[in-house]
Design a protein around this nucleic acid. Structure first.
Ligand SMILES: [Mn+2]
Ligand SMILES: [Mn+2]
Ligand SMILES: [Zn+2]
Ligand SMILES: [Zn+2]
Lengths: 156, 156
DNA sequence: AGTGATATTGATAATCGTTTTCACTGTCGT
DNA sequence: ACGACAGTGAAAACGATTATCAATATCACT
């Protein structure tokens, strides 16, 4: 957390940007999150104790955090974007429960490798990809009484 | 095309909806497309010869076509949605050129199978998925002079 | 073919997350 | 401390899509 804050300060300095009170507060709140958070959600966390900060500045600071390589922006389905730490850890993809909104992360080397092959075959140069599985989590599928039989992945 | 139109008419009839002049014109224009088209794009095609049709009706008819199982709606990146025929053919995923917007389709059974495994392991019940690869197509990567060396898929 | 209940249309306004604008304020190198 | 200029926040703008609503078209039933 302290290290990430320092990284952010360093980025601002190198980019000739100013280290403002608001930026530090927002970055601190962001690094304190452990899940996927929306701009609005982060705003509420910050505004709780610092009412003078505007939602616009949260949007702007999140963009800076992305530029600094410290945040990833995700667009699940429609609606608002969610942000999460851009850990130096592994890349991961997501499973989203369409009922309760729960987001589960996973990583699968084989899928990534297969994507590689496909792309190379087609002559593309891949920059990034998006793999999202939508469905019901264990709890929600139990609750809605959906059969637990074998399900065929069919996509949209 | 004639068959798809008939399917649409049948759907409208069964759902107690009316077969209007506008719906037929819009459906006809949609079935005449061969690529991914936006609501606005389809509207322009129709409005060319039938200026009395409104964009709103295009949106509404596209929703009906989806409900009838004849169209798929895709959300690539941000911005407007694109629609394409929901052929009875195989499911497919997409590669999108971030430079020129070209969309290439592909299907890979192994990836689908791996997704199955992951999901089953996590206890989810999958409804649909989204796999999109973003990068430069052959032409654009040549034009921008990006090296043709081996590229590592790294995702966002 | 005519009637009437009601589904549909299209112009317009509303929505919603995000970005721009702009006058005022804060930061930081000097 | 000064001053250039980047940053802030309130409000307005944005862009794709959806809701409203009065006027119109469809179609089952005569
Ligand atoms: Mn994540
Ligand atoms: Mn397609
Ligand atoms: Zn759930
Ligand atoms: Zn291209």
């Amino acid at each position: 957390m302290q290290e990430k804050l320092r990284q952010f300060q360093r980025y601002l300095d190198k980019a000739g940007l100013k280290a403002t009170r608001q930026r530090e507060l927002i970055a601190r709140a962001f690094f304190a999150t452990t899940t996927h958070v929306s701009a609005e959600g982060l705003y509420r966390r910050v505004a709780g104790r610092h009412p003078r900060i505007g939602l616009v500045t949260v949007y702007r600071t999140l963009k800076l955090l992305k530029d600094a390589g410290l945040a990833h922006e995700r667009q699940f389905g429609e609606g608002r974007a969610l942000f999460e730490h851009a850990s130096s850890e592994h890349h991961h993809d997501h499973i989203i429960c369409t009922e309760c909104g729960k987001i589960t992360e996973f990583e699968n080397y084989e899928i990534e490798a297969l994507q590689e092959q496909i792309v190379r075959r087609l002559g593309f140069l891949i920059r990034h990809h998006k793999l999202e599985l939508y469905g019901l989590c264990r709890e929600c599928s139990a609750a809605t009484g959906a059969g637990q039989g074998i399900q065929t992945a069919e996509a949209g």
